[in-house]
Design a protein around this nucleic acid. Structure first.
Length: 279
DNA sequence: CGGCCTGGAGATCCTGGTCA
DNA sequence: TGACCAGGATCTCCAGGCCG
């Protein structure tokens, strides 16, 4: 092949643009649950830029790694691979800037049906030790497409996650022969509005109240999230009942890990904003 | 020498055929 | 109709090699 000389050379911006666009087109199909064939995409990119199947595969994994850092969904079959070149940040920046909706893509609004509710619960991920250092380029990209802010602003995502948890809680109680309690579950944030410091009132099979605050992300488990002052206060006041349900990977295969008070034992809480008043 | 890339092994999934 | 199977297609992972 005339392209053999590309082996070992850095990817050019043009090549990166091609593969990034292709990756997002696959991701779009995956999120829409349209079947597609990865190897066909790989072959099309290979034909367009003349690199080998293996190197394209690896670059897909690099793109997964960057999207993972951005708290965006990534293609499950391409395990995030670090060691990405800096030029990749710029290519992803160009794509997201030119197709802004993709960074803010809505989660499916229809609620996914879960056959086995307990299977969505996973342990809380371990914090990295030591925390991995981000390069300046990645840091800049994360700031520009801040996943925490994005999830927080996305009300539809939040409501979708709450509906998902509501269904799981109902199913859980029905499975435990407490359909009487299942009927008493309340979607507090929907019925009474935000401000209670939790979203869903549910129950243990014993009848004990559970105050569930739902935080939803399309990204990975480790994506940070915002807590309001009220939520933190209610978590403290109702230590025994309050629980955080962190829903993640919502657009693809939703999973949940839970956090119990005291919050400071499990989470690092950094103040983000201040209420300012004239004095 | 280390960052970056490659090739291929093995695992898994899919499809179509056979048979009860 | 559905269970089962073979083998082809596709996917996933990573050890090791190349190049600046």
């Amino acid at each position: 092949m005339a392209y053999d000389s590309k082996a070992g050379s850095d990817w050019t911006d043009d090549e990166l643009d091609v593969i990034v666009a292709d990756y997002f087109s696959m991701l779009g199909q995956e999120l829409a649950r349209h079947p597609y064939v990865k190897s066909h995409h790989n072959a099309a990119v290979a034909g367009a830029i003349g690199r080998s199947r293996g190197s394209i595969e690896f670059k897909y994994q690099n793109i997964s790694a960057v999207l993972h850092e951005l708290g965006l969904p990534w293609i499950f079959g391409y395990k995030p691979a670090v060691n990405f070149q800096n030029a990749l940040f710029d290519a992803i920046d160009r794509h997201l800037t030119g197709n802004r909706d993709e960074a803010y893509r809505q989660a499916p609004t229809r609620v996914l049906h879960v056959a086995e509710p307990q299977s969505v619960f996973v342990p809380m991920p371990q914090a990295e030790d030591p925390p991995s250092k981000r390069s300046a380029g990645l840091e800049r990209l994360v700031r520009k497409f801040d996943p925490v802010e994005r999830d927080f602003r996305n009300r539809e995502l939040g409501k979708g996650g709450e509906q998902f948890v509501l269904d799981i809680e109902r199913q859980r109680l029905i499975d435990q022969d407490r359909s009487d309690l299942a009927r008493k579950i309340r979607w507090v944030s929907m019925e009474d509005g935000d401000g209670a410091g939790y979203d869903i009132l549910s129950f243990e099979p014993t009848g004990t109240e559970m105050l569930i605050e739902v935080k939803t992300a399309n990204g990975a488990a480790k994506t940070p999230f915002f807590l309001t002052r009220t939520e933190v206060e209610v978590a403290e006041e109702r230590k025994d009942a309050w629980q955080l349900y962190r829903v993640h990977r919502f657009a693809q295969t939703p999973q949940i890990f839970t956090v119990n008070p005291p919050l400071a034992a499990a989470l690092r809480l950094d103040p983000e904003s201040w209420r300012a008043a004239i004095r």
